[in-house]
Computed example of a mutant assay.
Amino acid sequence: MVDPIEYVSYKIAVKAKEADPENTDDVDQIRYGVALDIGFYSVILLTVAIGMITKEFWGTLIGMGAFYYLRKFTGGFHFSSLFVCTIVSVAILSIIPHIHLSEFTVVSLTFICIPLIIFFSNKDTKTKAIASLIVLINFVFISPAAALAFFAQSLTLIKLRR
């Protein structure tokens, strides 16, 4: 199956190169940047739309923000297909605000994220400390959406053997 995001981004890159032949970037460099933007903004647009339709707009924004900011500092698993990444991301981020948790579960999930970050992130100690502080903020807010997003992101740090 051809990745739809890759297909569209290639077509856009070719048109961009034709429109500006003096641009020193080659088509593949342009395609790569366009594909990342399409994937990123598709996740935001689709997830926010689902959050609005299901009347979980704020929970969706909290979960999406928590997931994004933690991932920025910890890294994590990447799918080989941007389309698959987009679909999985939208599914996870759209489900998160619909899961209701007790305060004990929120605190427990938040706590579990810290050792997952420390042991499984391949970032330096300072970056792991920043990521841990981001998670620790949830002990103030006790947000189920943030706890689930942090937990989901922390799970992407675990490398499964193939």
Rank of each mutant, 00 (worst) to 15 (best):
V84A: 13
F79R: 03
I95N: 03
V107R: 08
F83N: 01
H98L: 12
K126E: 13
K72F: 07
Y41T: 10
L136N: 01
A35G: 14
V34Y: 02
G63N: 10
L93S: 10
T125H: 10
T127K: 14
A66D: 11
L157F: 11
L148I: 15
L46D: 03
M52V: 15
G39M: 08
M52C: 08
P144H: 13
S89Q: 04
I38Q: 01
A66C: 09
F40M: 07
I142V: 14
G39C: 13
F67T: 04
P115I: 12
I53T: 14
I95Q: 02
F77C: 08
V2D: 08
V106P: 01
V106C: 05
G39S: 06
M52T: 07
L133W: 00
L82M: 06
V107Q: 07
V106T: 15
A19D: 15
I112H: 07
G76C: 09
M1H: 05
C113A: 10
C85A: 04
F57G: 03
L82N: 14
K55G: 06
I158R: 04
E18A: 12
G65L: 06
K55Y: 02
I5Y: 03
S132H: 02
G63T: 09
I112T: 12
R71H: 06
I53K: 12
N122Q: 15
I114H: 06
R31T: 13
A152V: 10
R71Y: 01
G33E: 14
T60A: 07
I96G: 02
Y7P: 00
V140H: 06
I114P: 04
I62V: 15
I96F: 03
Q29K: 14
I53E: 03
I137H: 07
F111K: 03
I96V: 09
I134Q: 01
F141G: 11
A13T: 15
A147R: 04
L109K: 10
A149T: 02
T74E: 04
E18Y: 00
R162M: 09
Q29I: 09
R161I: 05
V34A: 12
S80C: 06
A66Q: 07
I50H: 00
E6A: 15
L36Q: 08
I130W: 06
M1F: 02
K126N: 07
A91W: 00
A16C: 07
R161H: 11
C113F: 05
V2P: 03
P115Y: 12
I142Y: 13
T60H: 00
L116G: 03
L155S: 02
I87V: 15
P4E: 03
H98F: 02
L109E: 05
R162I: 10
V34F: 05
A129T: 11
G39V: 00
T47G: 09
S94W: 02
A131I: 02
L157E: 09
I158P: 04
I142D: 09
F119S: 11
